[in-house]
Design a protein around this nucleic acid. Sequence first.
DNA 1: TTTGCATGCGCAGTCGGTTGCACAGGCTCA
DNA 2: TGAGCCTGTGCAACCGACTGCGCATGCAAA
Lengths: 343, 343
Amino acid sequence: MNQKLPTIKEIARRLNVSVSTVSRALSDHPRIGAATRERVKQLAKELNYEPNAQAIFFKQKKTHVVGVILPYIREEFFSEAISGIEMVALEHEYTILFGQSYDDVEKEKEVVNAMRRQRVDGLIISPSKTTLRYDHIEALDNYDIPVVYFDRVPLSEKANRVYCNVYQGTIEMVGWLFNQGYRRIAFINGPDKIAASRDRLNGYIEGISRQKLKVDMQLVENTDLTKESTQDAVAKLLALKQPPNAIITFNDYVHMDAVQYADKQHIKVNRDIIFVSYANLPITAYTANPPLASLEQYPYAQGEKAMKMIIRLMNEKNAETQEAVFLSEEILPTLVINQYQPR
Amino acid sequence: MNQKLPTIKEIARRLNVSVSTVSRALSDHPRIGAATRERVKQLAKELNYEPNAQAIFFKQKKTHVVGVILPYIREEFFSEAISGIEMVALEHEYTILFGQSYDDVEKEKEVVNAMRRQRVDGLIISPSKTTLRYDHIEALDNYDIPVVYFDRVPLSEKANRVYCNVYQGTIEMVGWLFNQGYRRIAFINGPDKIAASRDRLNGYIEGISRQKLKVDMQLVENTDLTKESTQDAVAKLLALKQPPNAIITFNDYVHMDAVQYADKQHIKVNRDIIFVSYANLPITAYTANPPLASLEQYPYAQGEKAMKMIIRLMNEKNAETQEAVFLSEEILPTLVINQYQPR
DNA sequence: TTTGCATGCGCAGTCGGTTGCACAGGCTCA
DNA sequence: TGAGCCTGTGCAACCGACTGCGCATGCAAA
């Protein structure tokens, strides 16, 4: 087969006109006569002509490639998110250059640099949990590459961001637990340097206060998200003089490690102590002890919004707009109550 | 900041040489004098010059973009696979254009066409379970776009493929069950049109025969991979006069649906009936009833091999090699026995 | 008849590299 | 001393599209 892809030149040759005429005819330039325009369009259709996007991007000094860096794609939260990103990217003829940091800041730096070398037009990133400084990401500013932070956003306000308002969600969560009659509500939070943890903690404190309960910091533990660290946190809570009767965990993965450990300690999960969590992953439905409630954070919608935001930023870059206006999009989470009976 | 990226032209201007000299100096062309070569390389380093890959690819009529189409990225098997693909792609400066078929052949066609329009240099695809004809994929041949089928490979031999030998794995699985003392071994297979199902079934039949057992097709059911269909299959097996005491399921997702249903029917999972499966997904460790054994199919390694294969094919394309030689890579699976006590 | 303007189209440069070919200068060897 | 060769460098075309500018032609108004 091996049919040569038709170019604008080929059309010009066949119609005995110049390439510029063909180019203008195809883009409805007013100075091209109607007859010529139609002849060109007709032949273009017959030949199945499709403009070479690479050539156009090259001329425009664009790649139409957007970098996406996530910690782990195998986590359902992130794979849902990338699905949303992908959908919008395909619609707008953008290509995704995808990379994982595996929650390691050094690997993250490598990937960021690889993407810079590939001259991505923009970057969507959910930083690794070990990323405390953002220099390597902010350096992209020097190359005029806009960045959107996603889900895990930096504490600083000087960044474009899409995130879920877990502060509000956590207040709602605590309120729900209170209404169910629980009073000793513990919290296993994530690494305390990251914004996701800060928001949860603030929501927790606010939620507890609104119910006129006393905030007891003994009930708040942290995990670095590894299985061992999570189990340590559970152990400490169980060892309290007055152990909690409800535990909120950082996310469903932490939840799974936590209840697995609690189960081993002969705690009747969701009876002796009830567990609630964040993320609302479908997979938890299959687990031995799903969370009684989980906060849906709409990762797909977050991905869509992040992609739309980066597209907007990349377009504004051309327009040479004002300095230092940062975009921010917030998604409101929903507390999903599981319909199941604990064993 | 907004530092202009240095070009070859800029270097030429500063050193008062021509761009061709700079280009050749940087690529160690033998006709360039040592002194000139060093001056050029020196300045290139100082300016942090990095060649514009887009320009080079454009000249070479390549995009360095590889399309990857998978059914669902949220399935751990596929997200592991894409990690392997990504790793090799980053190393070789390839970009991934990623798309999901959501196991729907119509969506798959759309994505394939979008990728063709974007002029991907090659395609890695794991076809949807509703893909029975491959015309839309084979059409890429007309555009000289090589295709590698991955995991779910077509029955026809006329295709490049990377897959796991589940035929052998299934024989091993049946043998293991036999050695554990099980004699009525049932099988819940996937859609019977796809190669993955055919290989499993053949392996099952061969495995049963090798143990001098009689193949009883009453013990073989199919599921279209939906929860309902899987539950129907389990129900039929449970309703047999002589129900099975071991059930092999198509993969870990089918397994989860199957044991969830069996549990509801008051079957003591992995006591009354033991369950074994394919994929060995980490997530099953958290579920109420993990498979007693699962066949590890090494999706990451499969992804790596697929990417390496497509790179090889894309390079051969230039070399105008012989017609119709198809590459094939097989991975041997491993039966992983779970270390846990059923409840 | 000349001027002026609208219409229709082509030339050539541009983006950032690569590459075939030409050419100048110096050297060696018959 | 001239033929032939090697070395070092530049010119210009090329990839596929876009685009500023200029040049015809035709027609209407002066």
